[in-house]
Amino acid sequence: MVLDAGTLLRILLWGLVSGSVYMLLATGITLIFGVMKVVNFAHGELMMTGAFVTFILSHAFGLNPYVGVFVSMAAVGVLGIVIERVGFRRLRGTAKINEIFFSIALILILQNALARIFVPRFREYVQIKTPYATEVLDLGLITLRYDFVILLVLAWATLLGLWVVLYRTGLGRDVRGTSQNRTAAMLMGIRVERVDMLTFGIGAALGALAGSLYGIINPFGPYAGTLPAIKAFAVIILGGLGSVRGAVVGGLLYGIVESVATFFLGGSWRDAIAFVLLIVVLLTRPQGLFRGGA
């Protein structure tokens, strides 16, 4: 086998791209956890809902997906707010396991509702078609689809935007405060219910973005979100529950590790690699790589 520069570059590139998707997912989940101390297992379904909305906007209304993405983020953000209000808020104070139970019920509802609309009309998979779907950038060593470039730009721009919100706005300060110490935040007059709601909305919107970007480069269906979300969970545990920095670094790193591992070990290990990594790390550092906290 010729392990040349082109091949290596490609492997890293796929890792970077899928890592960016994981990064967005993980950040959304970890934000929600940091503020609400809730693990939302249905995040994969929010991801797919976002992908599907972007797809419909593009397929039925001809909207450029890169514009549709923002509409999708808003829509799923609102959905997230509703879910928090109607579900998780009620469960605050009851046993932790109830929240897990509720998110499992959410998986059943969202996944099958999506499938119900999706399957009869679109069968197994669809893919969001962009105007640049077949255009490539020739970089000498390799060729790169425009979509990949846009994906990376959008993902990182969003993260930058998130950083700005978290560190330069009042809301962001409230989020960080609630995440660090909820009681203290309440004492300081922060309306934690509002923070909960908005954080869940933001987390959901990030998931929608992840889903839409994923759906542009991969065929997807109603069930495609479960596995990436679970891997994202493994990532945030590695990165430290509640740590955005951990989610970003962890997500990216994991994408690359997954790509490299698949290359050398074969397709069968792709999905299990996340957990091998998780176990190895947790055996040595039970609290994860980074401390918690945004």
Partner: peptide
């Protein structure tokens, strides 16, 4: 003889390996 699991839709890594074998 590269494989992928049912339900998997990203084959880029396996295809990269195949390309390297010309």
């Amino acid at each position: 003889l590269e494989r992928f699991k049912v339900g998997e839709t990203d084959y880029r890594t396996q295809l990269t390996k195949i390309k390297a074998l010309t």
